Amino acid sequence: MTALHSLLSGCLLLAVIAPAAAGTVYKCTGAGGAVTYQDAPCPRTQQQQAIHLVDTQPTQPAPQPQEAAPDAAAPAPPPSAQPAPSTPLPVLYSCQRATDGKIYLSRNGDPQPYQAPFGVLGAVQAPLASVYGPGGGGGASAPELNRGKVTSGLVANNYVWVQDVCRELGPEETCDALQDEYDDNEHKLKQAFKSERAPFEQREAELQAQLANCGR
């Protein structure tokens, strides 16, 4: 029973020591065949047998640092307000109407000729009856008198071809003209009903883009 007891004790000792860690266990046999197991070398008076233990437990992998969960996509910042793109200054002309001398702005520097009553041009200074009538310096032959008397009204009511005269505006004059048009458009926009504002708002945007070249 002593030998069996010693063997069981040794198995239990191995079962306790082995799972702890891999290493060396010493089997000590003393006088009378008594066997003991220990983790330190046997006394010199005992027979010693070194038993090398192998760790049979699976090696636990070192915990991996967890990657930080990606933050929820931050909302993109609202786009900064961009200035309206500038539009090149238009070419404007200051034109003088041939009929009454009134000045107006135009984008066409070569307006089409048109017909106007001769009388509105201010070319008839004296009644033509006095020129062609009796005592007039021009006189009149018998055939002309037979056709009827020539009067200033007869000539003035005839139409003649006329054309307005234009000149191109410089950059500063163009900016002044655009600013005046912008102010007039803003006044009309404020006075317009909601259903009538679309064309004025469109023109406002066009003028703002052009005035960006004027530094205004």
Rank of each mutant, 00 (worst) to 15 (best):
L4E: 13
S6G: 09
L7G: 03
L8Y: 03
C11Y: 12
L14A: 04
A15R: 14
A15G: 13
I17S: 02
I17T: 15
I17A: 09
I17Q: 11
A18Q: 15
P19W: 11
A20L: 15
A21D: 06
G23C: 03
T24D: 14
K27P: 00
K27H: 03
T29M: 03
A31E: 03
G33V: 12
V35A: 05
T36K: 11
Y37I: 05
D39L: 14
A40Q: 15
A40T: 13
P41W: 02
P43V: 06
P43S: 10
T45D: 13
Q48C: 01
T56D: 10
T56N: 03
Q60S: 10
P65G: 02
P65E: 11
E67S: 14
A69T: 10
A72S: 06
P77T: 04
P78G: 03
P78D: 15
A81Y: 10
P83F: 08
A84D: 09
P85A: 14
P85H: 06
S86P: 03
S86G: 13
T87S: 15
P88D: 05
L89H: 10
L89V: 04
L92Q: 11
L92G: 07
L105T: 11
S106E: 03
R107F: 00
R107I: 02
N108S: 14
N108K: 08
D110F: 01
Q112R: 13
Y114C: 00
Y114K: 14
V120W: 00
G122L: 05
G122I: 05
A123Q: 07
V124P: 10
Q125W: 07
A129H: 02
A129P: 00
S130P: 00
V131H: 07
Y132P: 08
G135V: 03
G137P: 14
G138C: 05
N146A: 15
R147V: 09
K149T: 15
V150A: 01
V150H: 04
T151Y: 04
L154F: 05
L154K: 15
N157R: 14
N157I: 03
V160N: 05
W161K: 07
W161Q: 07
V162F: 05
V162M: 10
Q163T: 11
D164G: 09
V165P: 01
R167H: 12
E168I: 02
D176S: 13
L178T: 06
D180M: 06
D183P: 00
D183S: 09
N185G: 01
N185M: 04
H187G: 09
K188Y: 06
K188M: 04
K190I: 00
K190M: 02
F193C: 01
F193K: 14
K194T: 02
E196L: 01
R197I: 01
R197S: 01
A198S: 11
P199V: 02
F200D: 04
F200R: 10
Q202R: 14
R203I: 07
E206L: 05
L207I: 13
L211N: 05
C214Q: 07
R216N: 05
